[in-house]
Amino acid sequence: MSVDEKAVRRAARLARLAIPEERLAPMAAELTGIMEWVEQLNELDTDHVEPMTSVRPMRLHRRADVVTDGGYAADVVKNAPSSEDNFFVVPKVVE
């Protein structure tokens, strides 16, 4: 599978990454290389292998429905470039 410049531009846009125009072609070549390397896995026959979701035989841990966190609004907004009355304040988002 090869990745072209158009795909890189689109992925960058969706991820909100600024990729300079002159980096698109080299990036496409690099990503294509990575994809091809990963594609080697297709050589293995996995028809009768269960998908592996964890390297150790573990089950999803479930916690009890108890309030154990929160109550520190000032800390939550502490890193925000702008806040007021413990709200985050961001540039106007208009639908």
């Binding site: 916690r63 108890v66 309030v67 966190d69 929160g70 109550g71 609004a73 907004v77 985050f88």
Partner: peptide
């Protein structure tokens, strides 16, 4: 583990 209570102060129920 943050609370789901409606109408709390801004960002009070946030972990």
């Amino acid at each position: 583990g943050a609370s789901t209570t409606f109408g709390a102060e801004p960002n009070a129920n946030v972990s």
